[in-house]
Design a protein around this nucleic acid. Structure first.
Length: 881
RNA sequence: GCCCAGGUGGCGAAAUCGGUAGACGCACCAGGUUCAGGACCUGGCGGUGGAGACACUGUGGAGGUUCGAAUCCUCUCCUGGGCACCA
């Protein structure tokens, strides 16, 4: 039977116990049938676009989702009550690797797996009662969505913002396939165990580097972004001013130069070697005649290419046999190949100054290269034996000829000037960020709209032929992209010459999908354009909410795409997100075991039992599934790959959505990391039960008290109660604004405590009812954004009003906050020694006298001289002795 | 390795500003209530000493600034996030 909210008669439901599942079904049914959260543009209202990062449809919701979407829902409902026109949409980041992994594991097509997951997770989201406008739902794997990925790709290609070059990937030599970083474990392929190699393949790139300056300066416009995120992005962009320097050399009689970039040109006289990346042309040339160099380069190819890997790997090198000429001294400088030099940073070469760079120092020590100190640190002794952290500090030049005595800025200036005169260098701005490689050698993604023709080369798919539709019935098996075997997809006539041609089989990075979905929600029903005028009403997003793990990549790519769309005249928007809330990760234990075939097995913590074993009583973890031991890997963010997610369904089934939401909000402030532990749920459930009981015991109130709202002549205890309620309301307001929902919940709990226990002791008078009615009305509204179902029912049944979703937010009554006296803390030397209640605004002189006269203070003052007395108004009297 | 955060009772946490550390909950303990309960009520609850009033001590660790520090500064340890193909 479907429970209808309007069928709940005013008396009988309140006689029952709190039954969350029935209440929630009824309330949700009404929200659905009345389309409560569907919104349209309304120029008369302030808009509030509240967006939570859309989920990857991995199968089930996990607690991270519940947390994320509850935060968004709380903010949406709060702002709606504050009078905003609120848009809160939802959709699916539906392309990606896990669908292919599922296909490998279960022989189900990624499409089927994805759509089934979406269906289930949508049901879960609905059961949590989020105020979502489902009419705008999008899934990035749908052709009506990804068509516009392809469309914009082609536009960017026209503008020169997309280009092709080679890039490095992880190559599994056995499966003959490209691996994601996640699929490389300790340098080995996840399925084959083969040592992974770096391989250069052609890829498409988006020119994010030409937007670097704007991405950096516009960070200043993002006033309501966390500082930490802006810092991380600025560091990622990595603007640095330095000097590019050319080291000349002769190759078979041809004069060439090795170009390096340095931020420490002041140390140029300390250069004792140069190092190039293993893929550098000079290295490859050297390898031609020396097999040991060739072998070294091959060894460098082993392992994945991630920055973390490169930075932690042992620094190794080999001499190329070449020398280059120092641009200022003319000295011959040996050129080495270094496994720590990145081809993609600058031109793949660095100058080595072992005395003032830690990495160069250890490299020089290892290969017995010369170490020359050229910086003086206020006379501190330099030693070529052991590294000191101060060697990298800036100081005055020494051992540097004409530059001796110059400080950093002057030295760099002079050196750059001299290099420029010789045409061997100049000051230069360098960025850390690299162009965005978007090609993926995978099936489940947006097809890149390019056709290869023997006659015409790379030909863009004509706009009229978009979208290039991805066949949905492929089954990846882990050994490469199945599109390569789909002749119906592959073979096509060249749009230019009409001759036989083949399609590109690479698909796009899924970060492309998520770079513009916030815009699409404004106009998801428009089949004829990527965006339309509704975007200018809803965007920018007023509040974006998502995990801190997206602080850099997703948010940066999204900012980049928005700027590109602006430059293409599609939107007038400069930045997509006005305010950002970065949710802390939800963590849980990770348990794993290495299987006999070398693969990692992850066991969900719910399936792990901790047993005290052996004589030492040590805890061992046993998998309940097979009775065998598993090992703790510590606590990590909940993820599918580590199998440590917690399915919220059990919680919802047992306690209801309101409790799940309330508990999640109460557990900690949104920005904090949260280690999952469901122990406190009972308390949240108990609170809602207590609220229900209190309301049902007092259901007579609302009808019985007459409408007047005058609170004059209240008894002192009732004045105190009103004081507490309004103080708590004020606190809750502050906490809603600063998004500390845990203390909003505790304010609501305190309100109920105040109303329940303090009034209980009084005889019921008209005044008591008046104060209770007001207090409960405030409590219901304060709690509504967090626990919308129970409050919706109480609001209507108690007769406060029909529709809580649009009720007015309660106002703080300033007169209720007035106080006649205040409690001061008495301290001696900052240590609490007593308390003193004084009338508000007592003069300092009187407070002083009273404080000195208090018995506790007298006792502690014996035999001591008072030096001074500090009075902090309304707080503290500190006597310094 | 580099960049960014965070460390407060047995546990989650609170403390808009540098001004009573531990609000609000969980767990636990004591008592009550109930035929029963995955129910409810009352009280206690950082540590040490003390019968008690109370005293000392206490916000990862070590220093510092201040009348006063969880909060500011320096160093250090630990934990988490990111490091460009997980999303």
């Amino acid at each position: 039977m479907i429970y209808r909210l309007n069928n709940l008669t005013r008396t009988n439901v309140m006689n029952d116990q709190y039954a969350p599942n029935e209440i929630e079904k009824a309330v949700q049914a009404e929200w659905l049938s009345e389309k409560k959260f569907r919104v349209r543009e309304d120029q008369n209202k302030k808009k509030y676009y509240c967006l939570s990062m859309f989920p990857y449809p991995s199968g089930k919701l996990h607690m991270g989702h519940v947390r994320n979407y509850t935060i968004g829902d709380v903010l949406s409902r709060y702002h709606k009550m504050r009078g905003y026109n609120v848009l809160q949409p939802m959709g699916w980041d539906a392309f990606g690797l896990p669908a292919e992994n599922a296909a490998i594991a279960n022989r189900v097509s990624p499409a089927k797996w994805t759509y089934e997951n979406i269906k289930y997770m949508k049901k879960q989201l609905k059961s949590l009662g989020f105020a979502l406008d489902w009419s705008r739902e999008i899934a990035t794997c749908s052709p009506v969505y990804y068509k516009w990925n392809q469309w914009l790709f082609l536009k960017m290609l026209e503008k020169g913002l997309v280009y092709k070059k080679t890039g490095t990937v992880n190559w599994d030599p056995i499966d003959q396939t490209v691996l994601a970083n996640e699929q490389v474990i300790d340098g080995k392929g996840w399925r084959t165990g083969a040592t992974v190699e770096k391989r250069e393949i052609p890829m498409y790139y988006m020119k994010i580097t030409s937007y670097a300056e704007r991405l950096l300066t516009d960070l200043n416009r993002l006033e309501d972004w966390p500082e930490k995120v802006k810092t991380m992005q600025a560091n990622w962009l990595g603007k640095s001013q330095g000097v590019n320097i050319a080291f000349k050399y002769d190759l078979k009689g041809v004069s060439k130069s090795l170009k390096v970039f340095t931020t420490r040109a002041d140390t140029i006289m300390g250069v004792t070697f140069c190092a190039v990346a293993p893929e550098h042309a000079l290295a490859l040339y050297a390898a031609k005649c020396k097999p040991e160099i060739s072998k070294f380069i091959d060894e460098c190819r082993e392992g994945s290419y991630t920055e973390a890997e490169m930075a932690t790997a042992e620094k190794r090198g080999i001499f190329t046999g070449f020398y280059v000429e120092h641009p200022l001294t003319g000295r011959q400088i040996p050129v080495w190949i270094g496994n720590y030099v990145l081809l993609s940073y600058g031109e793949g070469a660095v100058m080595g100054v072992p005395a003032h760079d830690e990495r160069d120092f250890y490299f020089a020590k290892r290969y017995s290269l010369e170490i020359i100190s050229v910086i003086d640190f206020d006379g501190k002794e330099f030693s070529a034996k052991n590294w000191q952290t101060w060697y990298t500090k800036k100081g005055r030049c020494v051992n540097s000829g004409k530059y001796n005595g110059l400080v950093f800025d002057d030295a760099v200036g002079e050196i750059a000037k001299d290099l420029k005169k010789k045409d061997l260098g100049d000051v230069e701005i360098q960025w850390r960020i690299r162009d965005w490689g978007i090609s993926r050698q995978r099936y489940w993604g947006t097809p890149i709209p390019i056709i290869y023709c023997d006659q015409c080369g790379d030909v863009p798919v004509p706009y009229s032929q978009l979208p290039v539709v991805l066949p949905e019935d492929c089954f990846p098996d882990g050994s490469g992209n199945p599109l390569k075997n789909r002749d119906d997809f592959l073979n096509i006539n060249c749009p230019k010459c009409g001759g036989p041609a083949v399609r590109e089989t690479d698909t796009m990075d899924t970060f492309v999908d998520s770079s513009w979905y916030p815009l699409r929600y404004a106009c998801s029903d428009n089949a004829d354009a990527m965006v339309d005028e509704r975007v200018s009403y809803w965007l920018p997003v007023d509040q974006y909410i998502g995990g801190i793990e997206h602080a850099i990549l997703h948010l940066l790519y999204s900012r980049f795409w928005t700027k590109v769309m602006k430059d293409l005249g599609l939107v007038s928007l400069g930045e997509p997100f006005s305010k950002l809330l970065t949710q802390g990760m939800v963590l849980n234990q990770v348990f794993s075991r290495k299987e006999a075939d070398g693969r990692m097995l992850y066991v969900n913590p719910a399936d792990v039992e901790l047993k005290k074993g052996g004589r030492d009583g040590k805890l061992t973890a046993i998998s309940k599934l097979d009775g065998l031991p598993v090992f703790s890997e510590g606590i990590r963010t909940m993820s599918k790959s580590k199998n440590n997610g917690v399915d919220p369904q059990e919680l919802i089934d047992k306690y209801g959505a309101d409790t799940a939401r309330l508990f999640t909000m109460f557990a900690s402030p949104p920005e904090d990391t949260l280690s999952w532990n469901a122990d406190g749920v009972e308390g949240s459930f108990r609170f809602l039960k207590k609220l229900w009981k209190f309301a049902s015991e007092n259901k007579h109130l609302v009808q019985s008290t007459h409408k007047h709202t005058r609170f004059e002549g209240l008894e002192p205890n009732l004045l105190r109660i009103r004081h507490s309620i309004h103080q708590l309301l004020r606190q809750a307001n502050v906490d809603y604004e600063r998004k500390h929902f845990n203390t909003v919940v505790s304010a609501a709990m305190k309100m109920l405590n105040v109303l329940d226990s303090e009034i209980k002791t009084d005889k019921s008078t008209n005044n008591v009812d008046l104060v209770k009615k007001e207090g409960l009305g405030i409590l219901i509204r304060v709690l509504y954004p967090v626990a919308p179902h129970i409050t919706t029912v109480l609001w209507r049944i108690l007769g406060y009003g029909e529709d809580l979703t649009i009720a007015d937010w309660p106002e703080v009554d300033q007169t209720a906050l007035e106080e006649s006296d205040v409690l001061l803390i008495l301290q001696i030397n900052g240590k609490k020694r007593g308390e003193l209640r004084v009338p508000v605004d007592s003069p300092d002189k009187i407070i002083e006298t009273m404080a000195l006269g208090s018995p506790e203070i007298k006792k502690h003052l014996e035999g001591k001289n008072i030096k001074k007395i500090i009075i902090v108004p309304r707080r503290i009297v500190n006597i310094v002795v």
